[in-house]
Design a protein around this nucleic acid. Structure first.
Lengths: 139, 139
DNA sequence: CTGTATCCGTGCAGATACTG
DNA sequence: CAGTATCTGCACGGATACAG
């Protein structure tokens, strides 16, 4: 394993002395960002609503994720205590994934983000179109 | 400009026919993910609470962002209609950034995410420690 | 079925230098 | 001050092959 094992992406240490509003808060935000912003974690959490899903079910449903990335993502989420991984000692192997109580609380927050996106995607699309056309005129 | 101009990261097209729960929704989620998950956008939006900030002020406050990334991030947010950019024709130049009404609504949602992080960071840290120690034993 | 191991290409971010 | 332009590296993700 390569990046999955790395403890932190080696951000600058959280200095305690800055007065900026952020520095301490920054560390928190970066941590969550590096978790949910890694392109797949949010999807997985959103998908694991209150269900129990198997590895293959997740892979089929997410559509576009590679086996490797799903494994890495699930390991990270498991390490963070957001997802519980249950291995059934049967053959063929069966592994179930579900949200932990902590994961559920994050799911709620994430759901708000997803809802926001659905609600405002048209406005964003419009804004982009406007920006791009104006940009074209300037050029 | 390189990646700033790219319309979309060329995800697989949003097929309408899939029954997966996601595929349509996926597109929305991916879009917002690619926006807020790019490590800096969320920070900028959180920082721009209800203030007007200059380029340098943002750069100083965010602490760790490069000039280039701040520029790229701000352009993306402007394009998405989340941030308004105001250039004052003075010398030396002065450029103000502030959230648009749309940006404010996203800010609220993001704030919930930041709050979640602050509230649960200890639990995550504990979970990680547990996971790592157990991992060490197994090995 | 559920992974791990390895190789490999690319895209994103940092550093630096330059400009209006 | 507020950017652009360019080079560069390496971390990340995909593909593939293999294993328990």
């Amino acid at each position: 394993m390569e990046e999955g094992t790395s403890k932190e992406p080696s951000h600058s240490e959280c200095t305690e002395d800055a007065f900026q509003w952020d520095t301490r808060e920054d560390c928190d935000v970066r941590q969550i960002l590096d978790r949910i912003g890694d392109k797949w974690s949010l999807l997985v959490i959103a998908l694991l609503d209150n269900r129990v899903l198997r590895f293959t079910e997740l892979k089929k449903t997410i559509d576009g994720i590679s086996q490797r990335m799903l494994t890495v993502t699930l390991r990270q989420l498991e390490r963070d205590g957001l997802v519980r991984r249950t291995v059934h000692p049967v053959v063929p192997p069966r592994v179930d994934y579900e949200l932990t109580p902590l994961g559920v609380t994050l799911h709620d927050t994430i759901q708000a983000l997803v809802s926001w996106t659905e609600k405002h995607q048209n406005e964003i699309a419009t804004a982009r179109a406007t920006y791009d056309s104006r940009d074209a005129v300037v050029r």
